[in-house]
């Protein structure tokens, strides 16, 4: 564990909690892409199946359980409890154009052709593009609530910090995982446009198109 990974995990946890609380307190999921949240729930489910097969640490297990729990709770709030506030017309990204290619790629390019490893690879590739429906929705509506931009900032920051974590681990431990690194770079690059808008226009309230 290093500082980049710790802060990255906490930033990821913050993003997940911010979104869940925002929906719960405002009793509305307006402006939130339910499709992205479903993709994140799939990412966590396919990546954390090793919860059933191996114990790494209390921290690792707790975080995985929290991530999975919050992801499904968020999907539940969007599609069940507050479904009247779900803006389905603007959440129109064709996720099958993400899931199918990602699935194919996971079968073709992976570290080991085993069930758990292919699922893990699928979750890594899927996570790198899972935010696209949300960014697409914001570009269609042309606006985002401030709390939603904080959610996106924390979410984008987490994987950016993981990039530093991988540099750290390569330098100090000689460890690197090319699949995770390449997907992490793609994931972070997708946020760059948003990061620029978030930093340059934060606080004044803004309408922006990605």
């Amino acid at each position: 564990m290093n500082i980049f990974r710790l802060i990255g995990d906490l930033s990821h946890l913050a993003a997940i909690i911010i979104l869940l609380l925002k929906i719960w307190k405002s009793r509305s999921c307006a402006g939130i892409s339910g499709k992205s949240q479903i993709l994140f729930a799939i990412v966590f489910t396919t990546r954390y199946l090793d919860l059933l097969t191996s114990f790494i640490s209390l921290y690792n297990t707790c975080m995985k359980v929290i991530y999975i729990g919050c992801a499904y709770a968020t999907v539940y709030l969007i599609y069940m409890k507050f479904r009247a506030t779900y803006d389905g017309n603007h959440d129109s990204f064709r996720v099958e154009f993400l899931v199918v290619p990602v699935g194919g790629l996971a079968v073709l390019i992976n570290h080991d052709f085993s069930f758990l490893e292919i699922l893990w690879t699928f979750s890594i590739y899927l996570e790198s593009v899972a935010i696209l429906p949300q960014l697409f929705m914001i570009s269609k509506t042309g606006e985002a609530e401030t709390i939603t931009t904080h959610y996106l900032f924390c979410l984008g920051l987490y994987r950016a910090l993981y990039l530093f974590n991988w540099i750290w681990r390569f330098y100090f431990e000689g460890f690197f995982d090319m699949i995770a690194i390449v997907a992490g770079v793609v994931q972070t690059v997708l946020y760059c446009d948003f990061f620029y808008l978030y930093v340059t226009k934060d606080g004044k309230g803004y309408r922006f198109s990605i």
Partner: peptide, 10 residues
């Protein structure tokens, strides 16, 4: 290669 080590990252 990659899968030898435990996947200790989230």
């Amino acid at each position: 290669d990659g899968d030898a080590k435990q996947k200790d990252e989230l």
